[in-house]
Design a binder for these strands. Sequence first.
DNA 1: ATTCTATTTGAACGATTGTTCAAATAGAAT
DNA 2: ATTCTATTTGAACAATCGTTCAAATAGAAT
Lengths: 118, 118
Amino acid sequence: MKKNRLKDTCDVCSIDKKKVTKLKKIMPSDSVIKGIIVIFSALGNKTRAKIVFALSLEERLCVCDISNILGLTISAASHQLRKLRDLKIVTRKNEGNMVYYSLNNSYIRGLLANALRK
Amino acid sequence: MKKNRLKDTCDVCSIDKKKVTKLKKIMPSDSVIKGIIVIFSALGNKTRAKIVFALSLEERLCVCDISNILGLTISAASHQLRKLRDLKIVTRKNEGNMVYYSLNNSYIRGLLANALRK
DNA sequence: ATTCTATTTGAACGATTGTTCAAATAGAAT
DNA sequence: ATTCTATTTGAACAATCGTTCAAATAGAAT
């Protein structure tokens, strides 16, 4: 039960300094990483994954349809659609007082389909 | 400025009842959705995405290497590695008092590479 | 103009997340 | 046995997230 002395580096790892230096160099920049994690985290949510799934099979859906399909309040669906819209994952089209949403690009459709195929 | 009467359903959407019924039927179950969102949300984090990137290029790395590459405390790296391990994304191998981590399958490697290619 | 409609919004709230810190563990070396 | 080593863990904490609720908006119909 002796309290360990704290070390800020570990000696053993300096053996792998080459690996570390190499990987530090080729590690994508924070902005590139940010760009991919926003897509992954957009799909890393039950509601949004389901919305994207629905829109990957139906050309366009209104907010009310989506909330019906998912069993959500209209407000909850609208909030998530706004997030997806901010991320350019879906687009919105006004028609009278109805609003229709569609997938913005098929990249996301492929990503989800690929994950579901697993 | 008159407060609207609240409605629990919207009439217009009942026109699309077929779409809604169809999509409700083919919507993947919650457990299937859960299965894919855990992978997406695992990659939807800066630290974990970087760890996976590093391990996708280097066969195996110890915790200390990883924390050096990412500029993280060892503790923070270890916590995230545990999450990735719980999700079966990485595997761990003890060697003396060193612990080496590797990617568990190349599916994740492909997913990340594909996202970075965009 | 007002009252429908569908949708959006902001505030509130609890739930989940990610990092830090301190302490614990387990193997290796003394 | 103790003291290194590398790593793990649990608690704490702020930050972010997702839903609900109430109210706002904007177009269509009256």
